[in-house]
Computed example of a mutant assay.
Amino acid sequence: MRINFIVPPLGQSGGTMVVQRYVNELDKRGHDVRVYLPLTGLGLHRYSGKLMNCAHDIYSFFKGIIEIAKHPEKGKFVFSGSSRSIRDADVIIATAWPTAYLVNNLPNSKGKKFYFVQDFEVWDNQRLGLGSYQLPLKKIVISNWINQQLISNLGIGPFPIVYNGLDMPSESLAPHKDPYAVLMLNHSLEKKGIPYGVDAFRKAQKKIPTLHLTMFGLNDQSNLPQDLHIEYYQNPSQRKLNYLYDISSVFIFPSIEEGWGMTPLEAMAHGDIVVGTDAGFANELGRDKFNMLKSKPKDPIDMANNIIEVVNNNHLQTILRNNALNTVAELNWDNSVTRFEKLLQ
């Protein structure tokens, strides 16, 4: 098949990494795959004022230019999403709500139109985000939670689900696990619940002073409290991130809502105990006191109690760690790509 992916010019993220993995795996299977990154014309409409939206479009444009400079191998970069810029193909896939409008407006010669939905994207612009899911595109979602949101908010679905794959680590990069090392993702989106996770750690540290927190993320640490010592890594390499997973014992997953959640699953694969909310993957694969410890979203007290409990209970750690490893072992990229490929066909 000739397959075109359209990705937004917003830099690296978990979602774009998933798309890139599908691109690489489909290419290995003999498909003719091309990635298009439009540099103009998407318009996230994130702000109420026209001037701010214009400034954000300019910012996205230059961020796209940086992507080209850093990753020229990623695909074909175009300055617009016009029909002339995109080749004819068998399949064309939107990967975020602004790209859904672009794909919908292309002629049918560009291929069967799909929308790969990795989250319920209504934080930039609720009206346009919701509208994108009502476009006549074939949808593929990554979780039942996304289907639930589409059904309850728009009365559409359910759509085929393809869980994200996961790479199991071949070896540990750390000499041993630090029993008091806690790891957490940092993110600028409110729905990620970062203040609640930090607060939970702070409360747990008062009971166990030897606990220490490491965080990582694409953004800087300006959103984090200055009075709490946090070892921080901005945009770490995959090797460095794997080391952080390997040396840590607890991973905090404080999301209020989540399309899936790659990092806690990666942490499980490295033997970390996930203490988190019943959001994203945890709603489907997570079982409280079986393969993780769950709290309600926005409940740092309960989450702190779970951190304290697991750090002080070696027997519980063993149960959770073994069951978590068995859970993530069922997620592999070969199965995910096979299902994705069949849906495209």
Rank of each mutant, 00 (worst) to 15 (best):
F114W: 10
F114I: 07
Y115G: 05
Y115Q: 06
Y115A: 04
F116K: 02
V117T: 08
V117H: 00
Q118Y: 14
D119H: 10
F120M: 05
E121P: 03
W123K: 04
W123Q: 03
W123V: 11
D124S: 03
Q126P: 10
R127M: 10
R127A: 14
R127K: 13
R127W: 08
L128P: 02
L128Q: 00
L128R: 09
L128N: 09
L130I: 10
G131T: 12
S132D: 11
S132A: 11
S132Y: 15
S132H: 07
S132C: 07
Y133M: 02
Y133Q: 04
L135D: 03
L135Y: 06
L135K: 01
L135G: 03
P136K: 10
P136H: 08
L137P: 14
L137D: 13
L137G: 04
K138L: 11
K138P: 02
K138M: 09
K139S: 06
I140W: 13
I140N: 08
I140Y: 11
V141F: 10
S143W: 14
S143I: 02
N144W: 11
W145M: 03
N147W: 15
N147Q: 05
N147A: 04
N147C: 09
N147Y: 15
Q149P: 07
Q149K: 12
L150N: 01
I151T: 12
N153K: 13
N153Y: 14
I156K: 07
G157C: 11
P158L: 06
P158I: 01
F159P: 10
F159M: 02
P160H: 07
V162R: 12
V162L: 11
V162S: 02
Y163P: 09
Y163H: 14
N164K: 01
G165N: 04
D167Y: 02
D167T: 10
M168V: 09
M168A: 07
